[in-house]
Design a protein around this nucleic acid. Structure first.
Lengths: 230, 230
DNA sequence: TCAGTCTAAGTGTGATCACAGAAAGCAGCA
DNA sequence: TGCTGCTTTCTGTGATCACACTTAGACTGA
């Protein structure tokens, strides 16, 4: 989890394996690899123009993160989330990301605040515009969240949250492709707005409440999409 | 992080790389690899009787977890924690493990309770006995904590906590080797007792308070050992 | 005795080969 | 048409080799 794509600022990894890891992270949270998709080391290596070695290392890390699963048949695929697993992940996210938002409200610097404001405005713009680009909107949403988490000033917590988003990403983005009009159905704009205000006011509990509300909202949205079984 | 050693129950990994990963985790949290120790792929492979390939995969995962670091010189070593990094990790631990304890108090089953009781008794026994075995005591402490976290019923949270312990382990256990008599100085027994009682009484906030108190106590103990700089 | 150089061993990373096992495609029979 | 059995391809895993780079050490020179 040294250099997840979800990190706000990222440097191009020096090692080839690291680049493949970053590339796979991008595809994963971008919804290009839908849940259940099988992944082959050799075909991926050929597609990326490298040998299997860097792909092996990247996939190994992704499997360790839980972003990919290896079947008993040794087949690698994007995990198909069950309803209970998703609910569990949502519970964990509300606790951890809620805590991060609370810390952010108490420790944010002025530069943190301008960054958060910028991404909030970008997301809000995508919500009201007619020619809505889902990918851009999702990117703005991600940037907003991680700008908040970065303001908490806890790098190791950011890495943990990155790992959580890596698991949530495929489901979230793949669903969004099929129903982009429901982007703001969970009330994301409202939650973001309340979170931003709480951070401005240095009101920790309110920031936590807004963030957990946002997560619960998107979770409810996903639950109604019918992609989850079990 | 598929199969950390710190997990309470673990199955022997089928793949050779997984076995090496488990072995390295054991050495790491057991204090056999002190902070700053350099690690070589080939020598490790020879010591474990395998080729470099499985070691490479294991080390790659450990580096991704932050349990090992690779220098700009591409040298792999156990990271030397700075004081600020340790404080940050402690903050994160108090939030996450505190939440886990709170959840455990609310969701524990009778079988969870018997397990927690057993490990608490084992740790307490090591604290009062004359012929104290530090390694056994640390093992009991770890088992107690993870029995509590397992009772929270959130597997993904357990993996996250495992990752945190992987970073804390070397420092904690290596320090303990030099000052075993201070094992109970942080008031670990008292905190464990209060945590157990809170879990029995299904008192979430009390369980969280006891757990955060325990973590803060060991953190203060480490801070006085003088191993931390910067 | 000390500084400088130069060689040799060791480092991680990437590529290629070898191997056991699992799918998949396809022919042949009922 | 539908099922069985074989064969070919493809899978991940482990081992080995190649390469650029760093580092430790001995050796030479002053």
């Amino acid at each position: 989890m040294t250099d997840n794509v979800v990190d706000v600022e990222r440097a191009k990894p020096v090692t080839l394996g690291g680049q493949v890891y970053a590339e796979l992270c991008d595809r994963l949270i971008g919804g290009e690899l839908p849940p259940g998709e099988k992944v082959s080391l050799r075909s991926l290596a050929e597609a990326l123009g490298t040998s299997v070695m860097p792909v092996r290392e990247a996939v190994s890390r992704l499997v360790a993160d839980g972003a990919l699963t290896v079947s008993p048949n040794r087949a690698i695929s994007v995990p198909i989330m069950t309803l209970s697993a998703y609910q569990e992940l949502t519970t964990v996210r509300m606790a951890i990301e809620g805590f991060a938002a609370e810390r952010a409200a108490l420790h944010r610097t002025p530069s943190d605040l301008t960054l958060i404001r910028r991404y909030d405005a970008a997301f809000r713009h995508q919500c009201v515009t007619e020619t809505r680009d889902t990918a851009v909107a999702m990117r703005a949403n991600r940037d907003f969240h991680f700008a908040v988490y970065a303001a908490a000033g806890l790098p190791s917590l950011m890495k943990i949250i990155s790992g959580l988003w890596l698991k949530i990403g495929p489901l979230l983005n793949f669903d969004m492709r099929f129903s982009p009009e429901r982007l703001s159905l969970g009330g994301a704009e409202a939650h973001h707005g309340r979170c931003l205000e709480a951070i401005i006011a240095r009101d920790g509990p309110a920031a936590r409440a807004a963030m957990t509300g946002d997560i619960a909202g998107t979770a409810a949205f996903i639950a109604t999409s019918g992609q989850l079984h079990d």
